[in-house]
Design a binder for these strands. Sequence first.
DNA 1: ATGGTCGTTAAACGA
Length: 270
Amino acid sequence: MRLATWNVNSIRTRADRVIDWLERADVDVLAMQETKCTDAQFPMMPFAALGYEVAHVGLNQWNGVAIASRVGLDDVEIGFEGQPTWSSKPEEEATAEARALGATCGGVRVWSLYVPNGRTLADPHYAYKLDWLAALRNTAAGWLKEDPEQPIALVGDWNIAPKDEDVWDMAAFKGSTHVSEPERAAFQAMHDAQFTDVVRPFTEGPGIYTYWDYTQLAFQKRRGMRIDFILGSPGLASRVTGAEIVKDERRPKKGTTAPSDHAPVVVELA
DNA sequence: ATGGTCGTTAAACGA
């Protein structure tokens, strides 16, 4: 089974590229983030035509997560237990809930996650991000307590660069989110709860990124960040036989829309 | 050059 995650930065704009890649990549389950549309606006038809079922949650032009699967899509769950909401305003609460979607696909529990960006260290969104990650860790640890063997994949855009080598220049990120000690501690806490990065062992080294800013010719200048991850429970990690970051999908192509600013990340399971 | 590029939706604002 091949499982992938991709922050698509609008599925309506990107459907042609996502579908084109799905046809070529032999991916069984694709988790998407930043779909940027409502459930009614999600372009279901091209996925169905390829044999994929899709679950999606999105209530406006921000956030939105989805899971497309051709190996079954059961027990769909919007949000995880204890997931913090951003605001008391109803429409923004809904936005917060559109950051996590769970489903069981081919016997694997898959969560498509769009971790809050945090904006700046002083912004209330930063505290929200840390709260969100703490709640995820606690809830996910609870799942493993119930059944330590179950294969669970926590995949998506974590908006954290865990290591210095995961950004193109640490000096450029001084005082910024994504590299702060509390964010990195939150990422490590997932590992302490036995959810480990199953892609890193197959994609080691500096200069291996999953995201490149649209501005300043960042992709061409190789100025990227590694912020998209697949974390696996022990029952999932033991089945991993390979992984890749599909950098080519970040490349601009003639005759089609702009690429997402993120590349897909794929893991192969026995 | 205190910008640059994308996406949303129609003037900013978020990433």
